[in-house]
């Protein structure tokens, strides 16, 4: 599928998340795409190569190098690395951004982000939306390390992530939501994540902040940061990790399938990162990136 097949800004349907997007009256529309494949050099050496890298302002994708020790990738070689930079502030209400990621058979991609995303309200209170559509083929690995999403006061955003993993695919995916800037009342974000593995549902979760019930003791309470790391590892089909509580309000949760979720709620992003890191440490190598 090419990026041109995605209808942008259609009021009837999202890119392919299946959920209708409200009528847009203004705002930016942009889409970006990255794809990787495994190539064999004349010398017989195999390398993960970026085969497609398409940016559209404000979404800029660039080839990059490792900026910190990364889960799994810290222990592996021949990995393609791409970084996403959002050139403008936002998304702002009314904006609609689409990111498509395709990791071809056997290839490995680390997709990181330059800076946090600050969600801002639109001039007329419109909703903004980000759609991320990820496909990871058999034997391929995606390490997705986005920076936190900060919900500024008054924002209204839908963050829709759809992941299709072939059997034998490997995934690390981090999600961090911050409830407003320091001391600020939070805006509203609905994060919708749907991950399928071999065509079967593996992880399906909607997390809201600034939404009804979110600030209750059953959901995230008075925490200012909520996040998770989803890890899919084919080797866990035979040897899954065990559940455990982590320091603070966090836990390592093996899913029904070759996957685990580190879930955490914290007072701020620093604490949240530390909790997610503790979960990776509990998993051990190769997911523990070390220090």
């Amino acid at each position: 599928m090419t990026v041109d097949e995605i209808s942008v800004g259609s009021p009837a349907a999202s890119a392919d998340g299946g959920r209708p997007v409200p009528q847009q009256v203004s705002g930016m529309r942009a889409q970006a795409r990255v794809a990787t494949e495994l190539r064999t050099s004349p010398g017989g050496r195999q390398r993960s190569c970026v085969s497609t890298l398409r940016s559209q302002a404000p979404l800029a994708l660039r080839l990059t190098r490792a900026k910190a020790r990364e889960p799994w990738a810290a222990h592996a070689a021949d990995i393609a690395r791409v970084s996403l930079a959002a050139g403008a502030g936002g998304p702002v209400g009314g904006d609609q951004l689409i990111l498509r990621v395709e990791v071809g058979p056997g290839s490995s991609l680390v997709l990181s982000e330059i800076s946090p995303t600050l969600l801002l309200p639109g001039p007329r209170g419109e909703r903004s939306a980000t759609h991320v559509r990820i496909q990871v083929a058999a034997g391929a690995t995606l390490i997705w390390l986005p920076e936190p999403i900060i919900a500024a006061r008054g924002c209204d955003h839908v963050h829709n992530v759809v992941v299709d993993l072939d059997e034998g695919a490997r995934l690390f995916m981090r999600e961090e939501l911050l409830l407003g800037r320091h001391g600020e009342e939070t805006g509203r974000v609905t994060q919708r994540v749907s991950v399928r593995h071999g065509g079967r549902p593996l992880y399906r979760q909607d997390i809201g902040i600034g939404t009804a019930g979110a600030d209750t003791p059953a959901v995230i309470g008075h925490h200012r940061a909520v996040g998770s790391a989803l890890i899919v590892d084919p080797s866990w089909l035979s040897d899954p990790p065990s559940a455990r509580a982590l320091p603070g309000d966090a836990a390592l949760l093996p899913l029904s399938g070759p996957a685990a979720l580190i879930t955490a709620s914290a007072g701020d992003n620093l604490e949240l990162r530390a909790q997610l890191h503790a979960g990776l440490t509990a998993l051990g190598p190769p997911w523990d990136p070390g220090r």
Partner: peptide, 8 residues
Amino acid sequence: GGAPLLDI
């Protein structure tokens, strides 16, 4: 709808 604190 997820409830992280209930999960933990």
